[in-house]
Structure formats: structure tokens, C-alpha cells
Simulated scan of single mutants.
Amino acid sequence: MQYQLIETQNQLNDFVEKITGKPVLAIDTEFMRRRTLYPEVALIQVYDGEHLALIDPLAELSLFDFWQVLKNPEVLKVLHSPSEDIEVFQKYAGFVPTPLFDTQFALQILGHGNCMGFAHMVKELLDIEIDKSESRTNWLQRPLTEKQLDYAAADTYHLLPCFEIIKKQIDEAGFFDIVISESELVAQKRAYQTPAELLYKDIKNAWQLRPHDLAVLRELAAWRREKAERKNLALNFVVKEHNMVEIAKRKPASLNALRRVPGVEPMEVNRSGVEILKCIERGKAVPVSEQPAQLKRLIDFPAYKKAAKDIKQKITKAAKERGIPEDVLASKKQINQLISWNWKLDADERKAASKPDLFNSWRYEYVKDVLKEWQN
């Protein structure tokens, strides 16, 4: 396996010239996500079947011409389980390469089970054991070791021949457009941002709170994300999720009272105590008529179990007719997403929220006739 580490502009320019016009590129990224909200990209691996390069984004490089190659709709970009890679491109490059072929999803729709790991795929398809010992390494350190570079290069080197095997089976099954569409859905969902005023609904155990508590939690959740984005801090490094629920329940009026809330850490108070108290005051000032309604879990709806069972039966039938694994057509989470969309959101909230996957992807053509009553 031969590869090139690209650290200068001339090296990158030469590589871009070599891969321009190639119909398929295998791509991977290495990144770190320690305490940050956004992934810190550390390496971009690209292989066209002939030229394999590891591009160092920490070097002083203009990637403009390289981005143009990835933007080319005539070039198929191949990745394995690209959800986080998609986020890397969204944040670092400002776009998602398309069309994108996810080998993990392709294997899933072919009936190989959920979430097959890269090493497992390489073993199953190529009968090659690969070393994954560097998967948790520090990719931001410089210089990178030879072992790190070999590991990174192997990801795309083996990805391309796996893709060629999978692509043949996907074409025979007639699922190519579905694989491409699924990656577009993943990118769309990664790019979607829940409106700040609705973030509190996604907080675990928020259903336990009363309306005046939820008014505080709504303020806390919106503030936490704003600070996380501004400081590039992981959300739980601003304030832990379960602590926000306790704070909303107890509504401490001073820093000392905040410190006494079970679970709240001294660091959270030192860094954000004053801001937290301001959120509490704003939440307490919300008139009763404007406080959020108490949240209901799906299991709190008497008709939930029957509705979920009915949808699942219809999904199973549709999946069998189309020769698709039923958990690919609709997972339990996606069924619950559809029910929540109909039962928990009013018309205005539906406009602000993203549509359920079943009505917002290739799946719609497969289920629109059997799920007519759920389309509002």
C-alpha cells in the first residue's frame, strides 16, 4: 500500500490534478471530539484506485480546488458510515460532498444487518484482518506516527474494493438510488437545527416537569446551545442535561443555592452560574398563559401501542413486497417519530420541525399509500 502525506500546496495541487475526472473516490476523515461541540478535523484520506493521499488540514493549504472535485456531481464519493464525516464537511468545508455512497447502509439494505463496522466489512468481503488499534489515537498531534498514517491510509485503500463488490450487488437489486438518497437524508438531518424555543422538549426527563418548571428549562436549553456554539464546547461541558432538569425543578435564587442542587458541579457554577440564574429569572417571569404545556411521552397516550403495532404491520408488508429489510424501511425510532409528529406537534410546530423520515426520503414512495391517515 503506497500513499502520500500532503503537507504543501504544491503536493495538493499535483494530487488534485491526478484525481480530477476520476468517477469514484473513496474518502474518510480523522477527527477529534474531546470537549468540543464541533469535530476538529485532523486528516482527510482520498483514494481513486490509483493515487492515495492523506491531506493534512492543519498545514497551511488552500483546499479550494480539492473542494471543487468533491462538489462535482459526476464524481461518486464513497464513505463507510459517514454520519460524522458529513458533519466534518459541513463545518469545515461548508458543504457535503454529493452524490455520496454509504457502504454501511448499502450492506444493511442488502440484508447484512445493522451498522456493520469497517473492519468487519473488510474481513467479510476481502478476507483481510485490519488493525484498528489506532482508532482512538490523538489525530491532532504532529508529527503523526507511521503507524497512524498506515492506519488512516488503510481505511480508504480497503474501502474502494469493498465498494466495488457492494455496488455490483446494489445494482442487481436496483437499490442504488436508495443508497444515494439515504446519505442525502443523513446530511439533511445533520444540517437541521431545532429551533431554540423547542430544545427543551428533547431534554431527557423533561416530561416530569410542570409548566412553570418547563418555562425555566426552555430558557436553560436555549442558552446552553447558544453558549456551546459560541465557545465550541460540547453541550454537557456547559451544563449537564440532567442537572438542567434539577435546576428547573428547584429554581435556586443564588449561587450558593445553585451549588446545593444535587449533581451540579462546582465548575458549572464557576463558569456559568450567573448566566444560569438569569435563565431562571427569565423563566419565572413567563406568564402562566405563555408557559409550555406539560410534555407527554408516547406511552402516556392510550392509543400508542395499538398505533405503533398497526404501523409496524403495514411497514412489514410494504418491506416484504419491495424486498427490503423492514428495519431499513422503518426502525422503531422512525415509527415513533411519525407518531410524535402527528400527536405531539400542532400545525405551527410542524412547520418549524423537520418532517418524519418516512415522509421525507425515499421511504415516502414505499409507504405513502399504506400510511395515508398519518399524513397531515
Rank of each mutant, 00 (worst) to 15 (best):
V245G: 02
V186Y: 03
K201P: 07
R282L: 01
E290Q: 02
H212S: 03
V239Q: 14
Q208D: 02
R224K: 12
L185E: 06
R190I: 08
L214S: 04
K231E: 15
D202E: 13
I247P: 04
V238G: 11
Q291V: 03
K249L: 01
A228G: 12
G273Y: 08
R282I: 01
E268M: 08
G283V: 03
L258C: 04
K189E: 12
L277R: 06
H242T: 09
R224Q: 13
P287T: 05
N256Y: 09
V286S: 00
N270V: 13
D202K: 15
F237G: 07
V179F: 01
Q193M: 09
C279P: 03
R218S: 01
V261D: 00
N205A: 06
K204G: 11
W207Q: 07
D177S: 12
R259S: 15
V261M: 06
R224V: 11
K251P: 02
N256I: 07
Y192R: 10
L214T: 14
E268A: 12
R218N: 01
T194W: 11
V286Y: 00
V179D: 00
V239F: 09
K284R: 05
L198H: 15
V274S: 13
L258F: 05
E268C: 06
R190T: 06
L220V: 06
E241I: 07
V245I: 13
E281H: 03
A285E: 03
N236S: 11
Q188H: 14
V264S: 05
E219G: 03
K284M: 02
N236L: 04
R210G: 04
M244H: 07
R297V: 02
H212G: 00
S272D: 15
V239S: 14
A234G: 13
P211H: 04
R297M: 07
L233T: 15
E241W: 02
V179M: 03
L214V: 09
V216K: 00
R225M: 12
Y200A: 04
K201C: 08
E265I: 06
Q208F: 01
A196H: 12
I276S: 06
